[in-house]
Structures are given as C-alpha cells and as structure tokens.
Design a protein around this nucleic acid. Sequence first.
DNA 1: CCCGCTGAATTATCATATAATTCAGTCATA
DNA 2: TATGACTGAATTATATGATAATTCAGCGGG
Lengths: 248, 248
Amino acid sequence: MSSLRLPGDRNLTYGLVESLGRSIVAGKFDAKPFPTEGELATQHGTSRSVTREAVKMLTAKGLLRARPRQGTSVTSESHWNLLDPDVLRWLLERKFSLPLLKEFTQMRLAIEPAAVALAAAHADAAALTRIEACLERMRAADRGEGDAVEADIAFHTSLLGASGNRFFANLDQLVNTALRISIRFTNSVKGRAASIPQHEEVLNAVRAHEAERAATAMRVLILDVLELVSAAEPRSARASPRAGRRRA
Amino acid sequence: MSSLRLPGDRNLTYGLVESLGRSIVAGKFDAKPFPTEGELATQHGTSRSVTREAVKMLTAKGLLRARPRQGTSVTSESHWNLLDPDVLRWLLERKFSLPLLKEFTQMRLAIEPAAVALAAAHADAAALTRIEACLERMRAADRGEGDAVEADIAFHTSLLGASGNRFFANLDQLVNTALRISIRFTNSVKGRAASIPQHEEVLNAVRAHEAERAATAMRVLILDVLELVSAAEPRSARASPRAGRRRA
DNA sequence: CCCGCTGAATTATCATATAATTCAGTCATA
DNA sequence: TATGACTGAATTATATGATAATTCAGCGGG
C-alpha cells in the first residue's frame, strides 16, 4: 500500500529494511508478535522476494531471527549489531538514547586517540593534506561558509583513515553516523560549536609526528564531549565520567 | 552440483555465502569478472532465490556490488567490512595476513584496556564470577583439562561484556573469531601458551575496582602479543611496534 | 510420566515470468 | 568531427505460484 519512500531506498528492499528496522527499534513488536512472511508482504504491498530479502538483511544486522514453523521474531536487544551504522542510527534517532550516546563516546575515547597516535607515526603527506583541508572547512564553517557539522565529522573520519589501520578506518561510517547525532546534541546543550583550537592542536601534533601529544589532544577533545553527555544524564551511577583515568 | 557442505551452513544460502566469501577473498575473481546471477545459480546448483539472497548478504558485508545491466562485481578491498566476523575470518584464514593480524592487535590495544577499566569501575558481582570461571578454565587447561584457546578467548570476551558498554560487548564475536587465529599464531611462534599470572593480574585489579591498574595489566598482555606479531614481520617500516608509547 | 507419532504452520527452496535500469552502439545534427 | 538523443540488449529487480523441509503442539501408547 504505502509507497515506501524513505531515505536510503535505492530500491524496494532497502526501503522495506529501513521501514521495518525503525519499527523494530521503536518497539512496535514488543507486544504483538512479528508478522509472518506472507503478512509482511501483503501489509507492505511488496512481493515475497522483496520481503524475504529485507528480512534476511535485518537478520544479518541481528534484529530478527527466522526459523521454519516458529516464524520470524525480534531478537533481544543485546543481539543487535550496534556496529552496523543503520542499527545505531535507528537507535539514536528514534528513542533518543542518552546512555547509548555516552557509551559510544566511551568507545570513541578508546579508539580515536589510538588512531591519531598511529596517524602521527605514519604521517602520509597526502593524508595530512586531507586532514588540513577538513580543518580549513571547519574554519570556513565558523565564518558561516559551509556546514560545521559535516566538516567536524570529516575531520575525525579523515584521521581514522590516516591511521593506516584498516579496523580504525572501517569505523568511519559508524563514526559518521553517530557523530552527526552526537554533535547535534552537544551543540544543543552548550551553544558552542566544535572548538577549532583543540582540533588544530591535534593536527599540529600529527604533523609534528608527536604521537603521544596527538593522542592526548584527541583525548581532551572527546572527554569534553563525554562530560557534556554525562552531565545531561539524570543523577545516578555516574560517580566518575571515565573511571580510573587521570594524567592523560 | 557440489553439495555445499561448509562450516556454518544452516541452510543453502549460508553455505553459498561461505563458499563465495572465501572465493572472493582468495582473489578468484581478480582476473575474470564475477558471474551473473544466472551463472552463479547454475554453477552452484542453487535456485536464483538462494543465489540472490547470498549475493545480497555479501553485498551487506561490503564484498559485492550489484547494479542492473552492469552485473555483480567484487568491490575494492577497502570497502570490505572488517568488523564483520565472517569477513575477518575469511581474510585471516585464507591468505594468512600478518599485517592484518597486527592491525587487529592494535585495535585490541585500544579497546580492551578501556573495557577492563570500565569493568573495574562497574564491578558487577555476577560478571566477576563469570570472569573468575574463565580464569579457572585457563588454569584447568594448563593442567591438560580442557581447551586452552577457548578458555583464553572466553576470558577476554567476558571482560568485554563486563564493561557495561554495549559497543565493547558487541565486539565479542569479532574478538572471538580473530583471537582464535591470533592465539594459534602466537603459540606457534613461542611454544608458550597464554600467561596465567598476567591474566590473574587483570582479574585481581578488576576485583579490587582499580581501573587504571586493570587497564595497564591488559595493555601489557596485549603488547606482548603485538611484539610477537611485529617481530614476525619482514624487516620493513616497523621502526616502533606501537609508535609513541612507552611506559605502559 | 515419558516417548514416539502425526498434523499443521511457517520458513526454505525452486521455477518462471515481467519490469526497471543502464550500458554500448547508432544515427542525426550542428 | 563532435555531440546529443534514440534504440536494443543484458542484467538485476520484482512478482507469483508451487513444492520441500523443519519443527512445534498435541495425541496416544507404553
């Protein structure tokens, strides 16, 4: 019935994945059971081929589980693949989960300083140029030219790529997705946009091949975010924003 | 034609995914173009439904790209999703990639110390019991009772789970997959199995809620692995095993 | 109380047909 | 010659209908 015109619908299958993914994360099937293949097809006006492919993709993302006779069902939330950008986006967009954002920032605090340390050690000329371009975009955005959020994101992902570590580089899409929401949040709390000087310090350290200094600069930057996110939480079990770390 | 009896074949589709995934990673389609849907179906004796679902899953893993008229093609390696346990396993098993193992260990060095620090801060009683059980399994394996590799893996993944951070916890499958190969490698280089005292130190620190001490202990443990892996590399661009870090 | 059988519901697989997309070539035109 | 619209063919995308395999729930016998 519905035309299924959702963002990222290269075709019917992806549109259905998007639609179902949102519904699942929103908890629409917490009470009533998940429809069978046939029901899904008729409800959405898609063929069984499309329906099956969508279910298979959501299964790959850990949201669904299909077995003969038993039918298809939503898995417990702990099985959901948070490292999948789609899943994370659905979770962060729908019921805006502050705890999840905090946990994401904790992961960034582990990953990004290590990545910039590697970037400082490798110091590819072309990569450096790319990072500088991102910083320039941030400066331009600060003057009102261009999108500050996109520039900020590009800065961080370009550093992940410059690390020369394929695992860090592979996190770019995830960071891209979540950072977009994270920045929107931090900007809403404090009026201030991203701090240019802090980002400059990271770049300078990388350019100077000073790994430890670069890592520290990045750590400071992300700790700021983590404190903003933690402060927004209701008072409960957040004695230390990032336990057991001092002297970066 | 072939019966497609490969590990992890809950059904024909997963079997085909496994088979094609290995072939792609092995570079079987670097010269010749990737077959069309129809060709794949006839070659493997599967219906087009199964073939399409397999192709779709491999597309989700970033290995393939399908467009009408143009056909299906293998993407460049930089698009492959290393965070997918299947993809990583195919890469590590097939052409045993030492650089990739090194990069994976670098990521562990970023993740696991942060995770144990959080685990030490949270200190859930039930989680502690689980970790202790894993250590006991390691001790038992040291006496010849049980599998040492599995116990070692369980120790590390249980700590990821105890971190209380869902992103760290979600890395368990990835660590489970790659650690299995990593341990096999380190054990082959040096005869020694995993160091029990080092693991005990981690657990003790977590039990005592000493986050920084726990992180340090884990860092030491993984640095040992990283040095083993780095030492096995041919002499080239590895001036410092983990640049800009000293005094763990 | 337990074990095996049976039936039914649902996914898994197969087979075939039609639509949509897009690349490569053709041809008219400036 | 260069350029742009048109055309045809190849391939995926979607639809539809049928059969097989799996497994749960319930029944019946021991």
